Structures are given as structure tokens and as C-alpha cells.
Amino acid sequence: MSTFALFWFEWESNKYISRMKVGTSEATALDFKIRGFDYLVALDGEGERSHYTGDGYSDGKQLARFLEDTIADMEYYVTIPFYFYQFGKKIPRDSVSGNFDGSYWQRWIDGVVDSAGNNLKGFYWSLEAPGQFTYGYGDGIVSRYLIEGISYYVRRDYGLDLIWIPSLGGRTISDLEKYTDIKHYHGYFDYVFCQPNYYQKQFMSDGAPYQYSNLLDVFQWIQSIDYPTVSIELEADRGVLGIRCLDNRDCPTGTSCDGSYCHENCRALNSVSCIDYACDYVNAQYDTLGKLWTNRAYYFSTNLKAIDTVRNRCPKW
């Protein structure tokens, strides 16, 4: 059984910084270890908060050095950043329809590997769109040759893992079958952790309420693909902390004052309901598999106190 925790960083004031906290203190690798995590996945979203110079090798090397100084006490995965910002718009870092050889992403991987230590476990393909290889992601379709090249290069040439965490976005089972590539492309990855987005979404893609029974259906669909390689991401955020507020100035960065509580992305505006939604991910595992998933990823925003709070209600989270 392996557990993967998301570790958030960003480029700020000409350097990388960790966004992870335990309360008000900066989180360390030990803080993740004592909470039972086996691996960290270092990411910034889909690439928008990673430094971009156009030189993939230099950019990858720079991030790897930061991670070696910050989290190298644990085995970790490094993002392959998809986007960068230019004139306020997200732009892919290289051609999505071209080949992998010689691309920005190949040079990025080389830069990371050349600067990382022995605890580099692999890479994380950061684009979350679940239908990117067939139906596109907003700006175009990601070439099969590109992801095939990344997969072979990371897994065969370097002997490392490649993981993906696609967002299901409340899609119905019918839409998951029709408009996602997970069933057909999961073989390019060592692990795929599907985001059910039940914690965030009030409604399914057909407009119906996203109920617990729908979460069970989604879990069963994920299980049917390739258990345990294709698995789930458990989801919570700082909305579970119950931080009271009068206005946005009372709330941590990235949250807002809504309904007298600091709110992030939870579908509810009170911490009790948010914790209940997070705990449903545990209940749904037992109701579908009869046990916890063998491999699990965890999203809990940027404060490990969110994990502690949820586990006070459901210890197996």
C-alpha cells in the first residue's frame, strides 16, 4: 500500500518557495512522514507557477535543486509543467502536436534528473484534462506521440515512474466512457489517480445533483479499469478548518470569506459539511471495494492541519 501527498510550490520573487504549512509553520518532509505518507508529488498546478525561461534543461535543474534542499528526505515525484503564462494567458511550453524528442519537456526531464538525488522516484504529467489525447484540453489535442515519448523516456530510459492525476470534473459514467482517455491511455503511466471532484462539485455533468450514490458509481468505474494501477485521489482543503471571518482579510491566501467561514473549493460553506464530504471518500472505498484502495493520492490544499482535522472524524482518511 502506497500513499502519495501533493506538495505545492511556486516561483515567487525570483526563487522557489514551498506553499506547504502545518498551521502557520512551514511543513517539512518529516511532517508528511509522521502522517503516514510514502511519497510526495511536487507540483504547482499545471505549470503556471513554475519558472519559465524557454530552456527546459535549465528550468528543470533549477526546480530540482530547490526540491533537493526542501523535501529530499522523502522519495518524491516532480511535475512536468505543461503551461506557462505569457501576457496573462496560459500557453503550452512546447508544441502539443509534435514529437517528444528535442522538446522542452525532454530537456526539462534531463535537467531534473541531472540535479536530483537518489530519492527522485519519477515524474508527474501535470495536465489534468482527462480527454486531452482525443478530445483536447482547450487549445488542442495532445499528441499520442508526445505522451508515448514521455512515457518511454521516463520509464524505459531512466527507469523512473510516470504518474497522472486527471480531473473527472463530476462527469457522469456515460460521459466518462465517451469523453475521457483514461481507459485507453492509462498504460502509459505507472499510476493514475482519478480526481472524483465530489468534494468540490454540487452537480454532475448532466445537471443532476452529485450524490453519494454517484460517487459510488464513479469509484466502481475507476476500479473496473485496472485495479490497483488506476486509483483515486482523496480530496479536502482548508474549508475543513472552520476558520471564522468577517471579510477576506481574515482568511489565508487562496481562500475567501463566505458564510462567515474561510472557504476554498468545498461545495459547502461550513466546515462540518466539508469534513463529511471528505470522509465520504473513505466510506465509498469500503462500499465499493470492501477496503481502502491499495494506492491513493491525497489533495488537502496547502495546510497539513486539513489532514489532521479530517482524520479526527474519519481516522482512515
Rank of each mutant, 00 (worst) to 15 (best):
S2F: 14
A5R: 00
F7C: 08
E12S: 11
K15D: 11
R19V: 09
M20I: 03
V22E: 14
G23F: 10
T24I: 15
T28C: 09
L30Q: 15
I34W: 09
D38Y: 07
Y39P: 09
G45F: 13
G45P: 00
E46L: 03
R49T: 07
H51Y: 10
G56K: 13
D59Q: 02
A64T: 12
R65S: 11
I71D: 04
M74C: 09
M74H: 06
Y76C: 00
V78Q: 10
F82L: 09
F82Y: 09
Y83W: 15
Y85I: 15
K89I: 06
Y104L: 01
Y104E: 06
D110P: 01
V113E: 09
D114S: 15
G117L: 14
N118K: 11
L127F: 13
A129C: 10
A129W: 10
G131K: 07
G136L: 13
G136V: 11
Y137E: 14
D139P: 03
I141P: 00
R144S: 14
S151P: 08
Y152G: 12
R155D: 06
D157R: 14
G169S: 13
K183C: 05
G187R: 14
Y188T: 03
Y188F: 15
Y191R: 15
F193R: 00
Q195H: 09
S213V: 11
I222H: 05
S224F: 10
I225S: 04
V230W: 06
E233D: 07
E235L: 13
D237F: 11
V240F: 06
C245R: 07
R249M: 07
D250N: 13
C251P: 07
T253H: 12
T255H: 06
Y261A: 04
E264I: 02
C266E: 08
C266Y: 05
R267C: 00
L269E: 02
D276T: 12
A278D: 02
V282G: 04
V282F: 03
N283L: 07
A284I: 10
L289T: 05
Y298M: 08
Y299S: 00
S301Q: 10
T309R: 08
N312D: 10
C314N: 12
W317Y: 13
